[in-house]
Design a binder for these strands. Structure first.
Lengths: 347, 347
DNA sequence: GACGTGGGAAGACAGATGAGCAACAAGACC
DNA sequence: GGTCTTGTTGCTCATCTGTCTTCCCACGTC
C-alpha cells in the first residue's frame, strides 16, 4: 500500500545496467545488441521486482495510448449496448488495447456529445467507437474526425465514416422464410411506427419474400403500433380478429411478439398450434423466457462491436485504410434463432 | 485530420508569454501573480486555438490520471451491469473523472482477474471499482489493494474492503409487506436454490414479516427451484396445487414470477384477482411488460454504482478514509415498485 | 535596502530512441 | 612484428514526449 511503484530505473539499478538497456530488452527492440546473459539478467530482475511499465509515460513518448474510446448511447436502457461493449472489449483486449467508456443520453445535445468526444481526445485515445442504441442515422460531433473512428449500429447522415450495421433485410427474410418453410401461406406482419431504417426494410423484405414465394405480398396484412408490448398486443388483436386470419405472424421485435402472445391467449389461439410467431432482436430475457420459447432473429451486437474494434485497430496500426470502407456501411448478418414458436399450420 | 494537436507551448508562443505563465493561468494556480490583462490574453488565445491539455502528460506530472478502473463481471448477461456502469459513469463525469472498463467472465480465474487489475494499474487509474453481477462473496485479486478500491454488489470473503450491497432483507420485507397490506393472510414464497446471501436473507425476512404480523411464518409454504422462468413455473405449480393455496405469492426474482404467471394462467387463476404476485429485481423488460404489470422490488444498481464512485473519488481526493467504512458493507435500499399484480384477496 | 510585482528558466514525471563510444578482433600495410 | 584501418559487439548518453512546479530574477517603489 505504501511502497512506491517501481520503475524502469529501479530495474536498471538492480540489474546493474542502464535504463536504456532495460528498455531495449523489455521491448525487444530489434536493432538493440545486447548479450543473452544481460537479457536474462534484466528479465529476471524485472520479474522479481514485479515491474510493470507506466503506460502513461510510454504513451506520452510513443504517441500511442493503446486506449480506444467508446461513446455509447444509453448503456443502461437495453442489454444491446452491453453486447456491443462486450464485443468491443474482447476484441480490444485480444490486441492489447483497453476501452474508455463514456455514456451519452440518447437525448444529449450535439455539444454535449462533442464534449464527450473531447474528453476522449484529451486522453489521447488512439481511436473512437461511436455506438448508438439502435440502427438509425445520426449526426456526429465534428471533432470525431480528428482520430480514426467507426460507427456502430448506425450510419452518419451525409457523412462518410466507416460504419457497421445489421442486415435488417436479411434478418427479416430469414424470419418470414421460417414461417413459409413451416408451410404457412397466410402470414401477417406487426410493424413499428418509428421512422427508422428497420421499419421500412423489414416491411419491404416481408412483402418481397411472400411475393417471391408466389403469394400476394402486397395484400398480406400489416398492422403498425408503437414497438412495445401493448402495441404488439393491439396490432395482433386487429390482425387476428378479421376473418380468415393469418396462421403465421412476423413481429417487429420481441416485445411486440410478447404482446402478440397475450393477444393469442385471449383469443384462445395456442402457440404454435394455432398461430406461429417469430420475433426480432433476440432479447434473451424475453425470447427465451416466453412460453413457448420465441423463435426470433438475433441482432449482431456483439459482432458489430468486435468488427468495429478490429477494424479500428487495423486502421490505427496502418493495416487498413478506413476511408476505403467509408463509402458503404458494412452489413453483418442477423441469424435466425429457433425456439418453439413455429410449427406447421393446422389442417 | 493532419494538423498536429496544439499544446501549451503553442499557446505560449501565440500569446507571447512563457509556458509557465500559460500553465499558471489555465490552472488558476493560487500563488501565481499574473496581471489580469495577461490572463485574458492567455485565455483568449487558448480558446481560439482550441487548446485542450494533454491529460497524459498532465497525469504523468501530477500523478493523477482522473481515471477510474471498473472491472465488471459479465457486462452483457444482465442489464444490471449496465445500470452499475451508468451510475458510475454519471457520478464520475460529474466530478471530472472517466471510466476505463474491463469485462471479466464470471468464470474467470483469479489470475485472469489479477491481470485485468494489473492492466488498470499500469494505466495508473486513481481507483478501482470492482463489480459483480449479483450479490455474493468474492475472492479478490491481491493487487487490488494497491490503489483505493470499492466493491459493488458483493462482499469480499474475509477481506475488509469498502463495499456496497443491496438491502436484501429490507426489500423482501417491503415485498411481503405489500401483500399483507393488501389483506392477504395466506402467502407463499418461491425461492431460489443457489447458496447466495439473497436466498437466505429473503427467506428469513419472509418468515419474520409474517410472524410479526401475527401469522405463522414458519408454516408458510416455501418452494425452491432454480431461479429461472421454468423453475418459477414448477415451484408455483407445487405451491398452488395444494388445498387452501396461498392468495399471495412472493417470488425470488422477476423471472420466477414470470413462471408463476404461467402457472396461474394454466390453473385458471387470474392475477391479481385470484392471486397476487410480487417479484424482485425490477428487470424492466420483464416486470413492466408482463400482463398485468408485475409489482416488484428494485435492486439499486444505479445507486450502488454511483455511491461506490462518489466514495471512491472522495477517498482518492483525501476527503474520506475508505478503511473506516471497510468493516461493514454499506447497504442501499431496495424500493418497492408498484404495478398491477397485487390486489386484495377475494371475498 | 527591503519589499512587492510580474514573469521565466529549469528540473521532474517515466520511459523510448537515435547517436555514439569503448573494447576487442581481424585484416591490411609497411 | 608492429601499426593502422575497419568492423563488430555491447552498452550508454543525451534528448524527447507535454505539463506542472519550485525556485529565481528583473524591475520598480517606498
Amino acid at each position: 500500500m505504501s511502497n512506491k511503484t517501481i520503475g524502469i530505473k529501479d530495474v536498471a539499478l538492480a540489474a546493474g545496467v542502464s535504463v536504456t538497456t532495460v528498455s531495449h530488452v523489455l521491448n525487444e527492440v530489434a536493432y538493440a545488441r545486447i548479450s543473452p546473459e544481460t537479457r536474462d539478467k534484466v528479465r529476471t530482475v524485472a520479474e522479481q521486482l514485479g515491474y510493470g511499465p507506466n503506460r502513461l509515460a510510454q504513451a506520452l513518448r510513443t504517441q500511442r495510448t493503446g486506449m480506444l474510446g467508446l461513446v455509447s448511447e444509453e448503456i443502461a436502457t437495453t442489454p444491446h449496448a452491453g453486447r456491443i461493449i462486450l464485443g468491443a472489449d474482447e476484441a480490444a483486449k485480444a490486441r492489447g488495447y483497453n476501452l474508455m467508456i463514456i455514456n451519452t443520453p440518447g437525448s444529449a445535445s450535439l455539444e454535449s456529445r462533442q464534449a464527450d468526444v473531447q474528453a476522449l481526445l484529451e486522453r489521447r485515445v488512439d481511436g473512437i467507437l461511436y455506438a448508438t442504441m439502435y440502427h438509425r442515422n445520426v449526426k456526429l460531433p465534428a471533432n470525431l474526425g480528428s482520430v480514426p473512428s467507426v460507427l456502430v449500429d448506425s450510419v452518419a447522415t451525409g457523412g462518410n465514416i466507416t460504419a457497421v450495421i445489421p442486415d435488417e433485410e436479411g434478418g427479416a427474410r430469414a424470419a418470414v422464410g421460417a414461417l413459409l418453410d413451416a408451410g404457412h401461406t397466410r402470414v401477417g406482419f406487426i410493424n413499428n411506427t418509428d421512422d427508422v431504417p428497420a421499419t421500412h426494410e423489414r416491411l419491404q423484405a416481408f412483402r418481397s419474400v411472400l411475393t417471391e414465394a408466389g403469394l400476394d405480398g402486397d395484400a398480406a396484412p400489416v398492422e403498425s403500433e408503437v414497438s412495445e408490448v401493448h402495441g404488439g398486443y393491439e396490432a395482433a388483436m386487429r390482425i387476428l380478429a378479421g376473418g380468415n386470419p393469418p396462421t403465421g405472424l412476423f413481429c417487429y421485435n420481441d416485445r411486440m411478439a410478447m404482446g402478440a402472445y397475450r393477444a393469442a391467449a385471449e383469443l384462445g389461439l395456442s402457440i404454435p398450434g394455432d398461430l406461429s410467431v417469430v420475433g426480432f432482436d433476440d432479447q434473451e430475457l424475453i425470447a427465451a423466457n416466453l412460453y413457448p420459447g420465441l423463435t426470433t432473429v438475433a441482432l449482431p451486437h456483439y459482432e458489430m462491436g468486435a468488427w468495429a474494434t478490429e477494424h479500428l485497430i487495423d486502421a490505427i496500426e496502418g493495416k487498413t485504410d478506413l476511408a476505403l470502407m467509408a463509402t458503404h456501411p458494412t452489413i453483418l448478418g442477423c441469424p435466425l434463432v429457433s425456439r418453439e414458436s413455429i410449427a406447421a399450420p393446422r389442417q
